[in-house]
Structures are given as structure tokens and as C-alpha cells.
């Protein structure tokens, strides 16, 4: 059976059809062609599929597509404003906080949601907040530096 789902993604109202088994991640990638969120594990462990649902950071691989009917979804595709990168995106480039890039969309979405709740996090707070975002390449340190630096810039420091 197919479900007809209407939802808001990055401010735009969208509709899609999905089967019950399809996760939100499947729907974003396969039905809406939003391939920024990645499937690293499909079991909630890696965070590569991170998105916001009604402002809450979740793993889109552990949400059913049918569940998001009428909800507000935010993905990595909504982060840059046109050609203008979000400060976090810019700082990730400046600090070379990525190599293969598979984890990056998830890390950025998660970091953005942290800074919206807590504009001045300690390094420990950043590390704990991002503990569910695994990265096989960078060793994390550059990611943490980039987030701390972006936070400072966004505070106008």
C-alpha cells in the first residue's frame, strides 16, 4: 500500500508517495531527490542521515516516511542560502574538517541544531552533542575546531 504524504522540507511544501517500509531517509533520497543525507549504517549508529523533524535532531533512517505527514523537515540542502554558505559550512572548508565527506551533511545538520540551542558550547558539549555522528576520516579534532570557530564567529566574537 502506498501512502500519500504532504510535508514541508526546507520551507517548501512537498508531496510524495511511499510504502510503509520506506524510511524518511529513503523518501528524501529516492522520492524527493534530496541526496544530501547519507545512509551510513541504517541502524541509528552513525548519524550520516541526520535531519530535523519539527526542530528535533533525529536519524532519518529510524523514522518512517509516513510518520512525517504534516511535519517540518530540515535537511542539509536548506543550510546554504543560495550561493552563500552557512558559517559552519565555511568553517568546515577552512579547517579542512572533512575528507571523504560522507559524514559531513549529518555533522553539519547536527552542529547547526546545537548552535541554535546553545550558541556558546564548551568543547565537551560539542563532543557529546556530536557523539552520534561517526567519522572514519578526520579523527574528529578538525570537526570540533570548525564547530567551535563557527560558533565564535556566529556570536560575533
Amino acid at each position: 500500500m502506498k501512502h500519500h504524504v504532504t510535508t514541508t522540507v526546507n520551507g517548501d511544501e512537498v508531496e510524495f508517495l511511499c510504502s510503509t517500509e520506506q524510511t524518511l531517509l529513503d523518501c528524501l533520497r529516492d522520492e524527493l531527490d534530496l541526496t544530501g543525507a547519507k545512509e551510513g549504517c541504517g541502524s541509528g549508529d552513525c548519524g550520516a542521515c541526520s535531519v530535523l523533524v519539527d526542530g528535533r535532531l533525529v536519524c532519518s533512517c529510524l523514522v518512517l516516511g509516513v510518520e512525517v505527514s504534516g511535519k517540518k523537515i530540515e535537511t542539509i540542502e536548506g543550510m546554504a542560502k543560495g550561493d552563500e554558505l552557512h558559517p559552519l559550512q565555511r568553517k568546515f572548508l577552512e579547517h579542512a574538517a572533512l575528507q571523504c565527506g560522507i559524514c559531513t551533511p549529518g555533522v553539519l545538520v547536527a552542529a547547526k541544531s546545537l548552535l541554535e540551542k546553545n550558541p556558546d558550547p564548551t568543547e565537551t558539549e560539542v563532543r557529546y552533542w556530536l557523539a552520534g555522528n561517526l567519522c572514519r576520516c578526520t579523527g574528529y579534532d578538525k570537526i570540533i575546531r570548525a564547530v567551535m570557530d563557527a560558533a565564535a564567529e556566529m556570536r560575533g566574537a
Binding site: G44, G47, R56, V63, A110, Y128, W129, A131, G132
Partner: peptide, 9 residues
């Protein structure tokens, strides 16, 4: 329980 993402649910 779990990560920030898991906490969301």
C-alpha cells in the same frame, strides 16, 4: 539512551 539523534525520539 543513545546519541542526541536517538534522544530526539
Amino acid at each position: 539512551i543513545g546519541s542526541t539523534q536517538v534522544q530526539g525520539r
